[in-house]
Design a protein around this nucleic acid. Structure first.
Lengths: 185, 185
DNA sequence: CATCTGAGAAAACGCCCGTTCTCCCACGGT
DNA sequence: ACCGTGGGAGAACGGGCGTTTTCTCAGATG
């Protein structure tokens, strides 16, 4: 609080007029961050035209983000880990943010004529890249996620195309895989 | 502190004899958790024999973990988000834990005759599943991660096998993908 | 039996920090 | 010029909590 007062120059009195409590300030901050983050991502993706490129652009953008000097991981993941157990409001905002990100990705996946289940897989790659980049302190996870997406995208696309034999062939390709578990959801 | 005292029944005095400060207690807790987590994972994986199944078993185990009633996400990710910026010690423990997990996965990948770079991709799927499961409150991300791994594993295996044409065929399968960026790192 | 040691229980301290209160000045109306 | 209002700056309050201290007593020792 005092640090914010000092940094912003806004007197404490006014601060409490605008935000009745510290929590409400945090929530407002997270909401603002949510909007800006999604907007920046969308703007970057929009510099590409080809649907497949637009999907992969998400991971290129992550790489740029991870390279920012003050990158400290996804603020929503951090906030959820710290406050999610005590503040339902913060938990909800984090959940809403991740849902919005998922919808964004789902749109890109749909535009690339890939099946919807690819979305969930790409979300995991992106989220995993965020936490791994934060903890390891390296931007490389974005590249690894992109590499994985480059594999998953065509496979998913083939699975959705009118030639299902391709998907089947890919599914149990050379190496036989565990019997349990369904492939789509 | 007081809650720990109450819950454990250990008097505060003795607590401070064993752990000079709250931080040292937290660090000890994280170290113990680190060992237990990796041991549980290894024990579960060891119930399988086939190398490919052992890789996928990691995600089955994640599913079991996510279904535990008090699952609140990966404690190391949470601790890093909350304390990583202020406590170098906590940051190091989190990093060490994730490194150990990565090594565990790398061994499984090597045993399945898959190239090393698959490890990084599986790590991202697992980490992403942890955070997504925590925030969404659902265990399903484990299944999605497993589905993705089921696709990546045979492709990677094929890429490492002495028939590189398969990998190339898979790489630019039906849908051409973004020109920029290298495939392996 | 007297005494000393060490552990247990809980009160007390001190600090941090979110929140509120007080003081003071500048400005606008009459 | 006088006075009331509103906003700025910082001190002050209060609770929470990590840490320390005090008090007491059980058991061992000479």
């Amino acid at each position: 609080m005092d640090a914010i007062r000092t940094a912003s120059g806004v007197p404490l009195k006014r601060l409490y007029q605008i935000f009745p409590s510290k929590n409400s300030l945090i929530e407002a901050y997270l909401r603002r961050r949510d909007a800006r983050w999604l907007r920046n991502l969308a703007e970057y993706v929009d510099t590409y035209d080809a649907p497949e490129q637009r999907v992969l652009a998400v991971f290129d953008w992550l790489f740029l983000w991870f390279n920012e000097p003050d990158f400290r991981g996804c603020g929503f993941i951090n906030a959820f880990g710290e406050l999610g157990a005590t503040s339902q409001e913060v938990a909800d905002i984090a959940k809403a943010h991740k849902d919005a990100f998922r919808r964004c990705l789902a749109d890109l996946v749909a535009a690339a004529d890939a099946p919807a289940w690819l979305t969930d897989q790409l979300v995991l790659l992106a989220e995993g890249a965020m936490t791994t980049a934060a903890i390891s302190g390296s931007p490389e996870p974005a590249r690894h996620a992109r590499d994985a997406a480059r594999v998953l995208l065509p496979v998913a696309h083939a699975a959705a195309s009118p030639l299902p034999e391709q998907a089947v062939a890919l599914a149990h390709n050379p190496a036989p895989v565990s019997p349990g578990g369904t492939t789509t959801r």
